[in-house]
Nucleic acid binder design. Structure first.
Lengths: 159, 159
DNA sequence: TATTGTTATACTCTATAACTATA
DNA sequence: TATAGTTATAGAGTATAACAATA
């Protein structure tokens, strides 16, 4: 009875590392996006809107995990720059349907190009294959629990 | 010449997902840590200090990727609660040597126990094996580029 | 009455500049 | 002169409460 039983060790805690890497990515992204007049927050919103092909402000708030009141200001910024459009929903006039404009789509492409360089730098400790694995794990971790956040049906996997 | 050459596709962008998951982890962590009188920031500082076995404030700022001025306030909080100690370095009296107290070590253990539950919830979309892979990728990504951030030699891999 | 979006506001987080004490 | 830490402060991020329009 001297040998210990084989047990499943609990996985390491990822929280601190996640915070750390995310922080670095955000810091670097800020300086790259500033010349385009965007903040990281703006870019994430634009990306989500393109992937969804439009959204109500409330759903957007849930997806971004932001307070709805702050989404208002965020969209005000983007609307001032003609990057998004707010239209009243015809089926429920309380709602706004938020969509990218052509200008928004084009700026988003430019921003993504700039951000690719940032990722190359921040994630240069990983091989391309490892980066792909990281992407898949992050995607799976975020999308699995997303259904609870979105009350309205959003069909795209990006949610 | 109709068949396309096999090329390495560029890896997906991880930035948005990283931000998203990190955000969720932080939001959940806040509510769990609040009863202990801690904020996520405090916990990360305590964890780093334990792993390093002590640090100057400047090195701590580099490791946490925080501005040095904000580290002052952070350590003030922790010192008020007797979780850390600041001592003048005998070799360079400009510096403080920051170390955990016994109280700090004990509270850190309690906090980590609470945070384990948060990780289980936030990462429940991943299997234990996938979580371990995620940890290793995050660890590798952060530690590879850490040498540049820390001018002073810090021997522990946690840096 | 409940929901969507909005405004006003307070609180936290973060960064910049000026100061002190040591080197 | 340069560095470690501190203070004061301004800006950005975030959350809460009250309100208008609509359901």
């Amino acid at each position: 009875m001297t040998s210990l039983p084989v047990v499943n060790q609990p996985p390491h805690r990822c929280g601190a590392l996640l915070d750390h890497l995310s922080r670095r990515m955000r810091l670097r992204s800020e300086s790259v996006l500033a010349p385009l007049g965007l903040r990281p927050r703006h870019l994430i919103a634009l990306t989500v809107l393109r992937d969804l092909g439009g959204s109500s402000q409330q759903d957007l708030a849930k997806i971004l995990e932001m307070d709805g009141t702050n989404v208002v200001g965020l969209l005000n910024d983007l609307e001032t720059e003609n990057l998004i459009e707010r239209r009243r929903s015809p089926v429920d006039r309380r709602r706004h349907v938020v969509e990218l404009t052509d200008v928004g789509v084009k700026l988003l492409v430019r921003a993504e190009f700039a951000l690719a360089a940032v990722e190359d730098e921040v994630l240069r400790g990983l091989s391309d294959e490892q980066r792909e694995t990281l992407y898949e794990l992050l995607h799976q971790a975020t999308s699995k629990t997303e259904a609870e956040a979105c009350t309205e049906a959003v069909t795209r996997p990006t949610c």
